[in-house]
Design a protein around this nucleic acid. Structure first.
Lengths: 331, 331
DNA sequence: ATCTCTTGAGAGAGCGCTCTCTCCACATCC
DNA sequence: GGATGTGGAGAGAGCGCTCTCTCAAGAGAT
């Protein structure tokens, strides 16, 4: 009652195993009538190649590890970024017949597990989502002889091709938008500074304020809604006269809006708010959130292309995608 | 420069391949000093077992398919349910050393792909997330000789063990809460009726209204924010005097709140709103959303246990988990 | 001192597939 | 007609591992 093997198919079709294999793998050097016979046998027996046997000899697995290296606090906060990346990566990879092996590497022990797994040659390549500077995984994986690409520029300088959006430029555009609409005291809620996106978006904010001779007013959050809420309260204490705030991601912006509301500030009349990411929820805040959109799905698609390219000796240059200001009501 | 094999380990440790295998697999019938020698060789060579070779002979793969069978519209809407399930399933499965192979089965062709893959014996078991009645996948997978469990009761009657929450009871509790707070005209925004959760939550709503001799006022959404917004507008047209609404999930409730705001209704003074799911965003709506919580992570953990149990001939009885009313400000 | 029993280790047969090598048959050319 | 070339099919050697079977050696029983 076990699954039919290639041997069985060959026997039924009256050919050798090698010929059956040729048909299965679409080689052209098989006479049409023999091909038909084999295909009929395959259908009748419901034959499906055994991938273990196949990859044992080919040394390929046709699967890609999607490694999400983030502490649980962040992964389980409902940041839609992760799910969007995971889903679009899945779609893209399935389109080219690669399996997606999802690995969460949140703790030190799971790091070891991931490393062992990747080193074990279970996958042909790795897509890494790791955003914390302290993360040893990018460096560790780059040492293995498996192609690795990263979603977002790795926080430590390491030789891994990546796809990222223009965080600095996006933040600059956001702050310039606030300036252009006449805001004078522009604060920011920065993301965690051990993350590239946190750093770069703060840099962009500072660049513009410096160029226009304004003082920067900074509070630091950790990209969660809750931290945005807390940071906003702190900013209001630090500078009650602020009239605008650039929040380094939308999730924190949602929290910030809540704190502003609780403090009795009207948005955008008293305080203008610009977020970053353009998550779905940004359309549903009160008021709807002005934000910087970056194309997560295109970014993921580019990442997949980058990885597949590496398999065939393609280029390993980083890809930087532009961001776009989406003006809604909050600024 | 290729990866070391068990043969190499054995040679280095001066033992046979069989003995090295015993050590790798933790068998106890190996003398301590020999075990040490083998382990040293493993360390020195950086040996990692080749899983393809292993599963070729053991007929196990130690990986589990997580099949998400939903149309892209829903999967890519930012419903946090999916990501929470995916993530907690990952965590649970990794804890028992199973790999997670993520498969999105949104189109007919990807259905075929998934079926072929599962039939191909690439995985030891399947966790299925499929909620649409028209979905042929549950039935198809249940016919294969691979253990399958389902997150949520399958919409078509099919012999697959599942874990679900008490949708009917939860909806009843929500509506009873509205009644108890003195609301008279209680409407509902139902989920799609081809989904069990949509059906059951509507049933719960109707049960309570029937028992208290009230008229039901129903609009149907599709569990997205947008549809909640539209459905709410329609309800207000149908019955401008309604004073409460039970929304079948939080995402739609967020949309409904927006429509209520735009229509100038105060929540909860004019209209009370109760949602379902207790997603993270429910805490951040204006006002914060009263909702039915169901423990997604526990549910997922139970699902993993159910599947692992099947491997060892455990019970295949459905597991139904209770829901809990979380009272915030919207009702 | 001989026999049985247990423990520990090795030999070797596969698991199901791919792929090189070999060979055969037939067409083509001088 | 014989030498050469070419397309199509088979034989068979592994890929790296597990696991049964076998056997050696020492412990214990008679």
């Amino acid at each position: 009652m076990r699954r039919p093997t290639l041997e069985a198919v060959a026997a039924r079709a009256g050919v050798s195993r090698a010929t059956a294999s040729r048909v299965v793998n679409g080689q052209t050097t098989v006479a049409p009538h023999i091909r038909d016979a084999v295909e009929r046998a395959i259908d009748e027996l419901g034959y499906v190649p055994n991938s273990a046997a196949r990859s044992l000899v080919t040394q390929r697995t046709d699967s890609i590890a999607l490694v999400v290296s983030e502490p649980p606090t962040r992964v389980f906060s409902e940041d839609p970024l992760f799910s969007t990346v995971i889903r679009s990566a899945s779609v893209e990879l399935e389109a080219v017949n690669k399996q997606v092996v999802l690995m969460l590497a949140s703790s030190a022990e799971s790091h070891a597990r991931v490393e062992r797994y990747i080193a074990g040659g279970h996958v042909d390549g790795v897509m890494l989502i790791s955003m914390h500077g302290a993360d040893p995984l990018p460096a560790a994986l780059s040492r293995l002889r498996v192609p690795v690409v990263s979603y977002g520029r790795p926080a430590v300088p390491v030789d891994i091709p990546f796809v990222d959006n223009d965080n600095v430029g996006g933040a600059e555009a956001a702050v310039r938008h606030l300036l252009a609409s006449g805001r004078r005291r522009i604060a920011t809620i920065a993301g965690p500074l051990d993350m590239i996106a946190g750093q770069d978006r703060l840099t962009g904010y500072r660049n513009v304020l410096r160029d226009s001779d304004r003082r920067s007013i900074v509070a630091v959050g950790d990209f969660t809604r809750e931290s945005g809420s807390i940071a906003m309260r702190q900013l209001l204490r630090d500078d009650p006269a602020l009239d605008a705030v650039f929040v380094a991601n939308d999730l924190m912006a949602v929290g910030a809006l809540q704190s502003l509301r609780q403090a009795g500030r009207r948005v955008p009349e008293d305080v203008a708010v610009v977020g970053f990411d353009d998550i779905d929820a940004a359309k549903y805040t009160e008021p709807p959130l002005t934000t910087m959109r970056h194309p997560v799905m295109e970014q993921t698609a580019a990442l997949v292309r980058l990885l597949l390219g590496l398999f065939s000796g393609g280029p390993s240059d980083p890809v930087i995608l532009p961001t776009e200001l989406i003006v809604r009501e909050s600024a």
